[in-house]
Simulated assay, not measured.
Amino acid sequence: MSESASRGIAGAVDVVVIGAGHSGLAMSYLLGQRSFRHVVLERGEVANSWRTERWDSLHLLTPNWMARLPDYPYQGDDPDGYMSAGQIADFISDYATYTSAPVLTRTAVNRVEQSSHGFRVETQNGGWLCRAVVLATGAFNKPVVPRLAEAIPAAIEQLSAHSYRNPGQLAPGCWWLGRQRQGCNWRRKSSSAAGLSRSRWANTSGCRASIEVAIFNGGCLQPVCLTSASKTQTTPTAPEEYRRRSLSAHQTGPRSTSMSCRGKALKSSDA
């Protein structure tokens, strides 16, 4: 009896691509251009992480004119704007439609193992046999929580970039740990809400999320404090221009939004 008949094989292709985000769909397009039989397996929906694992006000850090996939440049009417997470998800979904990508949604991959055909990719709907596997699952799907979190009392709620959505989740009194892109983005959003920010300002990403929390509902919600390691351990500063076009002046909300902060910037010794 063949392996396909004996072990519940869903199909056999040249290549299995795992993940239907922008990388997986770009790979699918290129495989199709070379007539490789393939399938794209996705645990959720197309652009799933952008739709379900990003905070509400997230925007790109680079302007829209830089957003492009193979044979599919940005086609909107705001090339110098910055797409929101929802708009990015739509951009990726439109690309899947444009390329007629062979995506199987709601198909989680449980295991990849070698087989007589090359590889067997096991899903809840059966296995796929293939000669090659492409992992296009992204790099930030699981939050890295420092061991310090274990010592924090259970009464204090802890959120990661994976679970944070908006300031409405937060109780008064916030402390942002980390000043890389996610921490800086959140902190800026928390603090501008109250115009009351206590922070150690970081790189050009600009602490956007903590200001969101502080301006929540337009009132003085609470002071927000951001702490980090030394300056040498932060995200490298992004360039201001690329091919003579600006990459800066990013806003997380309407471009007319102005932000003011009262109070002092904390030094590490103050924190």
Rank of each mutant, 00 (worst) to 15 (best):
S23V: 15
G219R: 13
L221D: 07
T52R: 07
R131M: 01
L69H: 06
M27R: 00
Y95W: 01
Q222I: 02
T257P: 02
R34H: 13
E122W: 15
G81I: 06
S6D: 03
H162S: 14
L135H: 07
A26R: 02
D94M: 01
V145C: 05
L196G: 10
S199E: 03
E212L: 14
G168R: 15
T137A: 02
R68P: 03
S269M: 01
R51H: 10
S256C: 08
T227C: 05
R147V: 02
V13H: 06
Y72N: 06
Y95C: 06
N110R: 15
V17K: 00
V109H: 13
A202P: 14
R255M: 07
Q233S: 14
R187F: 14
D77S: 10
V103K: 09
S160G: 14
Y29D: 05
V46W: 04
F36A: 11
E42Q: 11
S191I: 12
Y72G: 05
I9N: 04
A136H: 01
A96Q: 07
D71V: 03
F119Y: 15
S6W: 05
R179P: 03
L135R: 08
H117D: 11
L135Q: 04
G138I: 12
V40Y: 07
C220R: 01
T257F: 11
N217P: 03
G21S: 14
S248A: 15
E42G: 09
D78T: 08
Q158F: 05
G127L: 00
S115F: 05
R165K: 15
N64Y: 09
A154Q: 12
L177Y: 13
I88C: 14
Y29N: 12
A26G: 09
V16A: 02
Q169K: 05
L41I: 01
C184T: 12
L41N: 06
G118T: 12
S248I: 12
A155G: 06
R37K: 12
Q169E: 15
T257E: 07
A132T: 03
C130W: 07
T227N: 11
D90F: 02
R255G: 00
V15M: 07
H59M: 00
E45D: 02
K142T: 12
A12N: 04
N185L: 13
F36V: 05
V121F: 07
L129I: 09
S84D: 03
A108W: 06
R187K: 11
Q124W: 07
I211A: 15
Y164S: 12
S28T: 12
M259W: 08
A89T: 01
E212G: 13
E45M: 09
G195M: 08
A193L: 13
V17P: 00
V145D: 05
S269L: 13
R200L: 01
W186Y: 01
V112Q: 03
L196N: 07
G263M: 10
T204E: 09
Q75V: 04
S192T: 10
V15S: 05
R179F: 11
T227E: 01
T232M: 04
T257Q: 10
S191A: 09
V16C: 13
D270F: 01
